Simulated assay, not measured.
Amino acid sequence: MRGVRREYGRGAATVHALRGIDLSLPRGSFTAVMGPSGSGKSTFLQCAAGLDVPTAGSVRLGGTEITGMNENELTELRRSRLGFVFQAFNLLPSLTVEQNVLLPMRLAGGRQDRARAEDLLARVGLEGKGRRRPAELSGGQQQRVAIARALVTRPDVVFADEPTGALDTTTAAEVLGLLRSAVDSLGATIVMVTHDPAAAASADQVLFLADGLIADRLPRSSAATIAARMTALTAPAYAGAAA
């Protein structure tokens, strides 16, 4: 991302969601993005993933400039080179677990590699559950299916938006372990938006957004260190509000 800005509205009502993001993330890395409400986290993820178009600046995926792509080109990019994991899982209830995992391949018009799906389901602890429907699985298991689906096309980047937000602490830790393993064992590149310091502690680095800018960053750190940095980042805002 180079000089990425995103504005909404016009004139005095203009909202500066991103004010100039310069960032380069290496392949095979795990980055967590944190920040107070309204800091620009969601806009950051949407612009980086080609789900929203920056007002200014450029976004490159590998050697591909995606900023000027039309909607059809962006759709193809998202199907073939990007993976997504959401808080709400977003599985299709009418499809089996295996069919959900293979869906990106099906949408991209390529060969549906059932052996690849079977391998990924085994990696996420769901071996033998390919014929089940999402409703037959727990929330944690459904998120495991979503992770397998995100990885099935061997994407350049997986974007995860609050992937543990709907899970209990133990299940969340298991899911984070799977994401960490995807980076370490499969060479995946993951960008994860989270509000949870414990989740961010799984990442190689943590970026802190504030008022549409990268305000700080930490190398891989403990949850306590991340929480303290987050508190320091938001303290002036709370103090100002209290005043």
Results as ranks from 00 to 15, higher is better:
residue 240 G to N: 14
residue 118 E to H: 15
residue 223 A to L: 11
residue 195 H to N: 09
residue 45 L to M: 15
residue 77 L to I: 05
residue 194 T to F: 09
residue 62 G to C: 05
residue 59 V to G: 07
residue 157 V to N: 06
residue 224 A to Q: 13
residue 99 Q to Y: 09
residue 100 N to V: 11
residue 187 G to L: 09
residue 235 A to G: 13
residue 39 S to E: 04
residue 60 R to C: 05
residue 176 L to R: 09
residue 234 T to P: 01
residue 239 A to S: 14
residue 196 D to C: 09
residue 30 F to V: 08
residue 157 V to L: 03
residue 232 A to D: 12
residue 15 V to G: 04
residue 57 G to H: 07
residue 195 H to Y: 01
residue 166 A to Y: 05
residue 167 L to R: 01
residue 48 A to S: 12
residue 235 A to M: 14
residue 201 A to N: 10
residue 195 H to Q: 07
residue 233 L to H: 02
residue 51 L to H: 07
residue 182 A to F: 06
residue 69 M to L: 15
residue 232 A to C: 10
residue 141 Q to K: 11
residue 176 L to W: 02
residue 121 L to S: 07
residue 9 G to L: 04
residue 42 S to D: 10
residue 155 P to Q: 06
residue 143 Q to H: 00
residue 144 R to G: 09
residue 143 Q to P: 04
residue 237 A to D: 10
residue 60 R to S: 07
residue 31 T to L: 14
residue 107 L to W: 04
residue 49 A to D: 12
residue 33 V to M: 05
residue 74 L to V: 03
residue 55 T to H: 05
residue 140 G to H: 01
residue 117 A to T: 08
residue 187 G to H: 08
residue 61 L to A: 06
residue 239 A to R: 15
residue 11 G to I: 08
residue 126 L to M: 05
residue 124 V to N: 08
residue 173 A to Q: 10
residue 96 T to H: 13
residue 32 A to Q: 00
residue 101 V to D: 00
residue 182 A to C: 02
residue 179 L to R: 08
residue 96 T to Q: 10
residue 128 G to D: 04
residue 15 V to K: 04
residue 18 L to R: 00
residue 16 H to A: 08
residue 181 S to Y: 01
residue 224 A to K: 14
residue 17 A to K: 03
residue 113 D to M: 02
residue 68 G to D: 05
residue 142 Q to A: 07
residue 37 S to T: 09
residue 150 A to N: 02
residue 15 V to Y: 00
residue 9 G to F: 02
residue 98 E to H: 06
residue 90 N to T: 11
residue 158 V to Q: 02
residue 92 L to D: 10
residue 40 G to F: 10
residue 218 L to R: 02
residue 10 R to M: 10
residue 125 G to Q: 11
residue 200 A to K: 09
residue 66 I to K: 07
residue 204 D to G: 13
residue 148 A to E: 00
residue 219 P to S: 14
residue 12 A to D: 14
residue 242 A to W: 12
residue 170 T to F: 12
residue 160 A to G: 01
residue 138 S to F: 07
residue 225 T to S: 15
residue 224 A to N: 11
residue 102 L to K: 09
residue 174 E to D: 14
residue 76 E to G: 06
residue 109 G to T: 09
residue 12 A to H: 05
residue 13 A to P: 05
residue 25 L to D: 06
